[in-house]
Design a protein around this nucleic acid. Sequence first.
DNA 1: ACAGCAAATTGGCCTGACCAATTCAAAGTA
DNA 2: TACTTTGAATTGGTCAGGCCAATTTGCTGT
Lengths: 247, 247
Amino acid sequence: MQNAQEINGRSLEKEEGRLNSERIVDYIENEIIHGRLRKGDKLPTERRMAEEMSVSRASVREAVKALEAMGVVKSVQGSGNYITDDPDSTINRPLCTLFALSDGTLDNLLQLRALLEIEACKDIITAASDEDIRELGRLMSYDYNAAAREQAKLDSKFHMSIVQLSRNTLVRYLYTTVLRLIDVYRERVLEETEQRGESNLTKRDHEDIVLALRKRDLTAVTQVLRSHILLNKDYRDALDRPYRTLV
Amino acid sequence: MQNAQEINGRSLEKEEGRLNSERIVDYIENEIIHGRLRKGDKLPTERRMAEEMSVSRASVREAVKALEAMGVVKSVQGSGNYITDDPDSTINRPLCTLFALSDGTLDNLLQLRALLEIEACKDIITAASDEDIRELGRLMSYDYNAAAREQAKLDSKFHMSIVQLSRNTLVRYLYTTVLRLIDVYRERVLEETEQRGESNLTKRDHEDIVLALRKRDLTAVTQVLRSHILLNKDYRDALDRPYRTLV
DNA sequence: ACAGCAAATTGGCCTGACCAATTCAAAGTA
DNA sequence: TACTTTGAATTGGTCAGGCCAATTTGCTGT
């Protein structure tokens, strides 16, 4: 088998120390970072890549699976491997298990959540249209007497909608992940305690948030958000325990 | 070949739709999240896992490579696969290419960086010891006349040291990643423009930061950090261009 | 022009083999 | 006894080549 190869004039020599699959991952990552491969593009066939890079298909597959784990590639049987950028499946899972490994606490999560959401609100206050904010108001008017589980879902949706108005891609991505991590815990709590009313507090908070946004009052929105997120009594008992032990 | 299997009483039936490698990833992730596998632990042999789960070693390897891409596992030839939690190799690369895919701008990055570092400073001001802050001061006193590249490296180290004092695991992790993304760009700039003095500004800022921390003055530290990070003229021309086009 | 079907394509998975780094225990030595 | 050496066993890295299953493609007949 050959050892040196060229693809697009780029050398793919068998470097010392690096695994085949790593080299392939690097190559594809590079193509992406430099814009030669873009969202939706189809990668060459596994068999073809294997041949071009003079490696076995097994190595190529390991690379593809790695990229898929990073959420950069999506495999479709019978069709091909495609570049994607789903922020959900992406950073999400890695960050989740990583966080579990790291003895991070629930409080860590909530703190970051508040940080990101407040940042998004800054953007909203300075740049969002009145219509955008009105839309948030509509999202807010859901049934606050529905089942707890359903309600939690809508609550998440409300907050997600806020953050989606941020102009910062990274903030939107990370918030998605952080909120999901929190939701996992929330779900767990719901399983155990099942139901419980008291969503009036939530309703009140949500109204206050939208109101403050409408007034473009950052101080107010910051205050409400901090208490809404950080002082939620559902979390109080668990704040300082490692997230890992909660889910 | 068998289809149903049990490991630790947990069923691993061949579910519809899920890939073998995915099932294995899920299984291991789960073991981690629930604390049954911890940092430093060694995974079972690839051959053993393959046998236990009734799949081929190829599938197991795809799963292991996926976990490695997420930074959760580290493979060592001849030795084994180990649970790790290196925040560097971890979230870092995925986030990097993902960010490249997403049209995120350099400004997005800097904004988030400021956010995280200021959050860390809050922690420092309320909880760090005077000794910790003195240590920062020592880190700061490096040669501000060294080569630009060397200087950039020390600058990063200084800021990293600040954030490492945060009690929030997630903040520390994310900052590492964000800073690295920025450094990639910075490195690029250095390659092009090569050298240039003017590090007195940096020196001044760093002094101000440590001073403000020493005084436990959050307002001051916030102000200095924001201008230090956001108003750096090196970035000015590139702020609104997609990060992808910069590296 | 369209619907239906069959072949080609493409990813998913398996077997079984060999290499290379590491580990480990037995044998040898000081 | 304690340390070193060394070779076998272990374990990840890679390969070849095959079969299956989903999808795509293109031909065919209406």
